[in-house]
Design a protein around this nucleic acid. Sequence first.
DNA 1: GGGTGAACATGAAAAGTTCTCATATACTAG
DNA 2: CTAGTATATGAGAACTTTTCATGTTCACCC
Lengths: 215, 215
Amino acid sequence: MSDIQAAKVPAEATPLRRQPVQQRSAKRVEQMLDASAALIDELGYDALTTTLIAKRAGVAVGSLYQFFPDKRAVVQALTARNLERFVGAVNERLKQLGPEHWWDVVDSILDIYLEMHRSVPGFSKVHFGDIIDRQLLDETRDNNAVIVDSLTDLLASQVDRPVEDLRFAITIANEVADALLKLAFRKEPSGDEKFVAEAKYVVKGYLAARFGEKS
Amino acid sequence: MSDIQAAKVPAEATPLRRQPVQQRSAKRVEQMLDASAALIDELGYDALTTTLIAKRAGVAVGSLYQFFPDKRAVVQALTARNLERFVGAVNERLKQLGPEHWWDVVDSILDIYLEMHRSVPGFSKVHFGDIIDRQLLDETRDNNAVIVDSLTDLLASQVDRPVEDLRFAITIANEVADALLKLAFRKEPSGDEKFVAEAKYVVKGYLAARFGEKS
DNA sequence: GGGTGAACATGAAAAGTTCTCATATACTAG
DNA sequence: CTAGTATATGAGAACTTTTCATGTTCACCC
């Protein structure tokens, strides 16, 4: 089973002004991201403030600007970190399971996604570029594409279809899953079960229709 | 065919500090919203500035604050206006057509939605509370619900199902349509045809599966 | 362990935005 | 025509974002 591309969230998506080299600063950057995540959860994106982030992270404002060019870059970095974690978790899970029917792969992925919604602060607000990439920054272009490409690679060996058709279907499925699960979490902070179930149903139904039942 | 509830976008969603009473001021408020829409299209939400809005609208900043309590309220009002226009257009269309198979109703609605994406400035960025209601303001709660309720009323007479099941299915369908069409417009400014077609396919497929083929 | 340059930390203040308010003008009813 | 309300305005108060000069810590070398 080919590993999902390590999702380094490449160059252009690394808006850091300076990459932290020493450990202490790397840790500080993490703290800043943690603080941002917590604050976004608590106050929402609009009420987010660089001063607040710094205070919460226990650093001076200047330190923040040592690494990030501006406020948006912080949120962007948070987004990237969430994406990395997600892809990492998916890899982990798939390694454990070995080759499966694609049906189960989809299930695993949705479960991981759910798990992150529940356990990662700020995840439901800024998973894959809701606020930043999608809404504002069109050049960084589609964080989702990273995921879609990874999943396409993954399923390409199991489904007998032209790769481009596969990628298209996965793009659609990804978007639908994202929208529906977000809806579930809007309805209820822990994810409304009825909506979660329907999300799974819709996604699997769509993929089954597009791929055919056979693996 | 029962009219869609006039979508006054009720009390709590009217965050105006003062309702314009005289015509000149009503017109000015419209100008401010137009300016906001244009600027959001051009610069994105984050780069939006009250000063810029005022300048573009040809009024003083103070005038803006005469009616809106804060910047977000402006965008919220823009959202509300878009919603009103959408519901209005749907009503219009349905009045013209008379009773139809729900299949055609869905088609009409999707077409109107597409049309607005293409012709209404800022629509693709802030249609139904993407930026404001959904991302930040949880108390105003679901603009989408207005639409969903309207559509539920509309279809209730044609589909032989418990109303709550209907509402649920429409909620899902609405969310899916929104996500997929947004994706289509992200891929291409005029709406990628392939994605638009797939959006229609997915939505209709879902509803057909949930309602059964019969009207 | 002493020295050196790069990485890092800091917070006061410059630059930029949001929002208020005292003042002035336009409208409406009577 | 007049009082009373609605509206318009922009300077500046309040708050944010971002810069930068200064001081500290680290990694490496002798």
